Computed example of a mutant assay.
Amino acid sequence: MPKDEIVTAPAAAGEPAERSVPRFEVELLKPHSHAGQDLLPGAKIKITAEQRTWLKSLGVVAGETPEK
């Protein structure tokens, strides 16, 4: 399986670009609802490090790379 990809989300309105939250692209292992959509295994989503840790603990996503 490919390693997680780090993607930087655009800064919110009025927020400096250097404060944008890093996001990780991960592949789902189980069905999951994300951003109001029901997704199936194999779908890729972009999530924060905290979300990735939580979804890994539930077995929804895999990933061997350390948090950054």
Rank of each mutant, 00 (worst) to 15 (best):
H32E: 03
P31V: 02
T53Q: 09
A43F: 03
P10W: 11
E15N: 12
L29I: 08
I6T: 13
F24I: 02
W54R: 15
E50M: 12
P2K: 15
E18C: 08
I45W: 01
K56A: 10
G59D: 00
K56C: 05
E27R: 09
K44I: 06
P31D: 00
E27N: 04
Q51F: 03
E18M: 09
E5C: 08
E27K: 04
E64Y: 05
W54G: 12
L55A: 05
S33L: 02
A35L: 10
R23Q: 02
G14Q: 07
R52M: 02
P22S: 05
A12P: 11
M1K: 15
E50G: 14
H32I: 00
D38K: 00
K30Y: 00
L39Y: 02
R19D: 09
K68D: 14
S33R: 03
V21A: 14
K68S: 14
E67G: 10
Q51S: 10
A17F: 08
A11H: 08
A49M: 07
E25I: 13
A35M: 00
K44F: 00
W54I: 15
T48S: 06
M1H: 10
V7P: 05
S33C: 03
T53I: 12
L55V: 04
W54N: 12
M1N: 08
W54H: 14
E18A: 11
L55M: 01
D4E: 14
T48L: 03
